[in-house]
Design a protein around this nucleic acid. Sequence first.
DNA 1: GTCTATATACCGATAGAC
DNA 2: GTCTATCGGTATATAGAC
Lengths: 208, 208
Amino acid sequence: MPHTPAAVSNRRGSYASGRARRDEIVQAAIVEFSEVGYYGASLRQIAARAGITHPGLLHHFPTKDALLAAVLAHRDAVDLEAMAEDKAQGRSYLEALVRLVERNGKRRAIVELYAALSGEATSPRHPAHAFFAGHYELSVRMAREAFDKLRDDGRLRQGVDPAWAARAVVALMDGLQIQWLQSLESDTGAPVDMARDLRAFLESLTLD
Amino acid sequence: MPHTPAAVSNRRGSYASGRARRDEIVQAAIVEFSEVGYYGASLRQIAARAGITHPGLLHHFPTKDALLAAVLAHRDAVDLEAMAEDKAQGRSYLEALVRLVERNGKRRAIVELYAALSGEATSPRHPAHAFFAGHYELSVRMAREAFDKLRDDGRLRQGVDPAWAARAVVALMDGLQIQWLQSLESDTGAPVDMARDLRAFLESLTLD
DNA sequence: GTCTATATACCGATAGAC
DNA sequence: GTCTATCGGTATATAGAC
């Protein structure tokens, strides 16, 4: 049996397998991008977090752009899988949204990643611009369909426009993330409870 | 009468006065920071936008940090002046907020500046972190006082918590800015109307 | 798969002439 | 007040040894 890459040793004790090493790098990149954004991050710092040198990193991801794309794809996969699980268990899209926000309340780096990148990426020249354009388009459309269904079921409060509610719920989630992150740094009172505030908004729109 | 700096000529035709030149640099910095954030911006690029070299810029603002501070102070001054004007004319804080959002709908660079910097600045090491911490603290407190007054006047819908409404209105403004900026790049339908969506939220909370 | 060494470019900031 | 020239540092990316 020929030796595999995973069996080769180096000063870290042993090589991680290709897949595991890529995951380590992606995790390190999430932390770094979340703290200083895409432009502020350096491949050397990310590589150091992952325990390798920056040419070592570039063996797995040929450019900084490619690494960012891998980070975003990874996050999409994780969240979409969880949402699909919720859907399989019969939960509505809006219920799944609240659960997503609850989970995010325990994963600061992920929230910081989205806050830092979504702000940077409003500029069309940012390498994540297309990703976030698609992300918002999808999020608002899914929320819109959920509110349409609520209205058809007669459970939407009178006078509430589903299209408005969809934009508002997505906007509220984004804005609450920023306030939550700020509240973690501040020493004034309890941190913002994103899921509770989101739930309060949804309840203010529905009849039950 | 001794000559003033404003009277000296250079290849641009004439020197701007100290004050005017500082304003030109601040305007250039707003554009650059808004497009690539603080970390992504370079003093050379900002200086080029303002029509000078980067050591010329550093004569007016000794460090990149100092330039950022000047940009934020300038924005604060402009917005607070407009809010004070509204207050002097008898408008409520929430009405002034809607008018602020209406004005922002015609000043894309300003909105992009806040979106890019507020995302970056959630990290405590960012040079604008303290500014945004204070900004959010103040915004939420002012909104809270406005909703408290509405409740005392019996004009707040039953069951609406003023503290929640304050966090939500600030969050909604932030989130709508990101969606508005994204909608300007997209070719699908009309752009998001931030002021209209904000007004709809406020109306959903009040009785009149 | 990871390393050292290096190429090339840009960064923020300073020195000193005009 | 603005310039040219430059310093020391870091960036992304590549070459080539192991």
